[in-house]
Nucleic acid binder design. Structure first.
Lengths: 165, 165
DNA sequence: AAAGATTGAACCCTCAATCTTG
DNA sequence: CAAGATTGAGGGTTCAATCTTT
């Protein structure tokens, strides 16, 4: 009989395979972006909401909420991306504490060039391997896990926190 | 009709929820280990195979294969863990190029103290939320993804590469 | 030449201050 | 005081050398 506090063989196998899949999937996506578009995964994650924003401008606060990052992480990443010319920072006219992050022309071209290959890679290495039922099952599992973690820790780390929807 | 190269709404929702789940799950596991056992996820991942190894000793080469890391990453991590007293390095008697990594008494105590709480967290935030069918579905999905990536890139980044089983 | 291992540089992420403005 | 934003320190990860031994 299984130790209720340990994992049985089936569970161990799943946890191990799941871990491996995450690692190899991350590596493949990172490499595709780096090779074909000279972008890191962090770059890409921020460029998408910036590209879709009205006027291609967002306040750090709002970009944080959109991607579920904390301000510190975003600030460090913006410094690096500003140095590479992908974004620029301007003062905010409505709140003197704030700044506005603007997508540069170079950043716009980078994300537009990167997106088709990125989506193709997500399809090839993940989504095209799933049946429609599996897509729904994964969505359901992810929602369950997120709900449990959110209830437990009292923090909603994802986009659209309790205070902004 | 959906753009064959883009993602439809169901797929987008799944990919987004899946991403969020991964991030929150990682954060929760990292924090539990750091809080309750003063270990990073990287520490933990290496301490498990070291603890289970005969004589609690492993060559870097073999530890790399066990966890799917490259040598460079392992070497950096070992330097940090050696400084904190969790492992020690000895010369290898059968191959003058090699070294042997040994779990210290302190490292042994650390992993033994950490494991119950870690497994409990994996259960609480993930495995206990899955039905037996979902456990098997996830295993199947992960194997499919790993196979596709391995065939495509020609590299088996996981444990038990083609040459060592 | 190939395998085992290490190192330095560059990037990424988290945490704890800090500073300014609402 | 709370919110917006930044910074510095320290750990983690990847890549390209490098060095030694097989």
């Amino acid at each position: 009989m299984p130790d209720p506090r340990g994992l049985d063989e089936r569970e161990k196998r799943m946890w191990h395979a799941f871990h491996d899949m995450r690692r190899r999937l991350d590596t493949s996506l990172d490499q595709q972006l780096a090779r074909d578009a000279a972008l890191s995964a962090a770059d890409h994650q921020l460029l998408v909401p910036l590209f879709e924003a009205p006027d291609q401008r967002l306040r750090p606060r709002d970009l944080c909420r959109a991607v579920g990052w904390d301000r510190s992480r975003l600030s460090h990443q913006m410094r690096r991306m500003e140095q590479r010319g992908l974004v620029s920072r301007e003062e905010c006219c409505t709140d003197a504490r704030g700044t506005v992050i603007r997508l540069t022309e170079e950043g716009r071209q980078a994300i537009q060039a990167a997106e088709p290959g990125h989506v193709e890679t997500v399809r090839r290495y993940f989504i095209d391997l799933l049946s429609p039922e599996e897509v729904d099952a994964l969505t359901s599992i992810a929602q369950r896990v997120l709900e449990r973690i959110t209830r437990d820790t009292g923090v909603d780390g994802g986009p659209c926190g309790p205070s902004d929807c």
